[in-house]
């Protein structure tokens, strides 16, 4: 059964409009935030993961990559990670206090040749809201891509959803 839109989600959906907090917005082609959250929640469950486990791995690779001081650095077993920043900070569209630095974490999986880029705000959105942004935005993170590229396996699970 689909999740109902709470007042907080309604306000978040307004913040996610293009041009409100970021130029492209957060939802892309998706109009229904509750459905998007439902679908991504199901996708993460099918992978045998939790949002907390996904966010923990994103955080772990960001912290390892930060040691490269803005350049790519090798991270075991076969990743190259770069943590770089651009000017500015972003608030969470769900309305929590605080601002997230515009930190770009680029992870290259050298075993598969695939790469993915995410931000500090993404880590918060996944951990706190199970939100991966809407399809059609440049910043959408597919849970399956994150799991494959960052090699997040069910064994990494921190807690059950």
């Amino acid at each position: 059964m689909a999740m109902k839109e709470t007042p907080q989600m309604k306000s978040a959906r307004a913040n996610m409009r293009p041009g409100k907090l970021s130029l492209p917005g957060f939802l892309g082609d998706e109009r229904d935030l509750a459905r998007l959250l439902d679908e991504d929640n199901e996708a993460v469950k099918r992978l045998g993961l939790t949002h907390a486990a996904v966010a923990a791995r994103m955080r772990e690779l960001r912290d390892a990559g930060a040691k490269g001081l803005g350049e790519f650095i090798a991270v075991a077993p076969h990743f190259d990670v770069r943590v770089d920043s651009v000017r500015g900070r972003m608030p969470c569209p769900f309305g929590e206090r605080g601002l997230y630095p515009k930190t770009n974490v680029t992870v290259r999986n050298l075993a598969t040749g695939r790469d993915i880029t995410y931000t500090d705000l993404h880590i918060h959105l996944v951990a706190a809201h199970g939100f991966y942004e809407g399809r059609g935005t440049p910043y959408r993170l597919e849970p399956a891509d994150l799991a494959a590229i960052l090699e997040i396996r069910p064994a990494n699970k921190e807690e059950t959803p």
């Binding site: 409100k20 970021s22 130029l23 651009v86 000017r87 500015g88 900070r89 972003m90």
Partner: peptide, 11 residues
């Protein structure tokens, strides 16, 4: 201003 006036850069 680095964000084009959306209140997200604080500059």
């Amino acid at each position: 201003s680095a964000c084009g006036g959306r209140g997200s850069c604080g500059m």
